[in-house]
Simulated scan of single mutants.
Amino acid sequence: MNEARLNSLLDFLAQEPTDAFTLYAIGMEWKEYNPKKAAEYFEKLVQHHPDYLAAYYQYSEVAIALQDRTKIIDLFEKGIALAQAQGNLKTLGELKNAYMNWQIEED
């Protein structure tokens, strides 16, 4: 985690508390070091910007790390539906593959 970058992002967030990119970037900064903290920012992102497609893949990885089965399913299903609606075939494939891999590991 880059502490200086995180502090800058938190300053930006203080000025615009629902800025999509800033929420995403903060979630990414926390993702490896504190998944629970990352989940807070990704949750705020999908609440305020449900069409921010990149959030669903990253947030689903955080939910997997936290073993939040209900959230995992919700994120994958919403992300897949959004990718289809947006016609984003690359992200659609990535989400479907990740979801399928998670399901296989769950069995």
Results as ranks from 00 to 15, higher is better:
1 M>Q: 03
2 N>R: 04
3 E>V: 05
5 R>K: 02
5 R>Y: 00
7 N>T: 07
7 N>S: 08
8 S>K: 15
10 L>P: 07
10 L>S: 00
11 D>T: 14
12 F>I: 02
12 F>V: 07
12 F>H: 12
13 L>M: 05
14 A>D: 01
14 A>H: 13
14 A>W: 04
15 Q>D: 13
16 E>S: 11
17 P>E: 12
17 P>A: 05
17 P>H: 10
19 D>S: 06
19 D>I: 01
19 D>P: 00
19 D>H: 07
20 A>W: 01
22 T>P: 09
24 Y>C: 02
27 G>V: 10
27 G>N: 14
27 G>R: 12
28 M>C: 13
29 E>H: 05
29 E>P: 01
30 W>Y: 15
32 E>Q: 14
33 Y>S: 14
34 N>K: 10
35 P>D: 10
36 K>L: 13
37 K>C: 06
37 K>N: 10
38 A>L: 00
39 A>G: 03
40 E>F: 08
40 E>L: 12
40 E>R: 03
42 F>E: 09
42 F>L: 12
42 F>D: 03
43 E>G: 15
43 E>Y: 13
44 K>Q: 09
45 L>N: 09
46 V>G: 00
46 V>P: 00
47 Q>E: 14
48 H>K: 13
48 H>Y: 08
49 H>S: 11
49 H>E: 07
51 D>A: 12
52 Y>F: 09
52 Y>C: 08
52 Y>R: 00
53 L>V: 02
54 A>F: 06
54 A>N: 10
56 Y>S: 03
56 Y>L: 04
56 Y>N: 08
57 Y>L: 12
60 S>G: 06
60 S>F: 01
60 S>T: 08
61 E>Q: 12
61 E>G: 02
61 E>Y: 02
63 A>L: 09
64 I>G: 00
64 I>D: 04
64 I>C: 07
65 A>V: 06
65 A>E: 05
66 L>E: 08
66 L>I: 11
67 Q>H: 14
67 Q>P: 10
67 Q>S: 07
68 D>G: 05
69 R>T: 15
69 R>L: 14
69 R>D: 15
71 K>E: 09
71 K>T: 04
74 D>R: 11
75 L>W: 06
77 E>V: 03
80 I>G: 01
80 I>Q: 01
81 A>I: 00
81 A>D: 09
82 L>S: 07
82 L>C: 04
84 Q>E: 00
84 Q>G: 02
84 Q>D: 04
85 A>D: 07
85 A>K: 11
87 G>I: 11
87 G>L: 03
87 G>V: 13
87 G>Q: 10
89 L>R: 14
90 K>S: 02
91 T>I: 13
92 L>A: 11
93 G>W: 04
93 G>S: 15
96 K>N: 08
97 N>A: 05
97 N>K: 15
97 N>F: 12
97 N>G: 12
98 A>N: 13
101 N>H: 14
101 N>P: 00
101 N>F: 12
102 W>T: 10
102 W>P: 09
103 Q>M: 15
105 E>G: 14
106 E>S: 14
107 D>A: 15
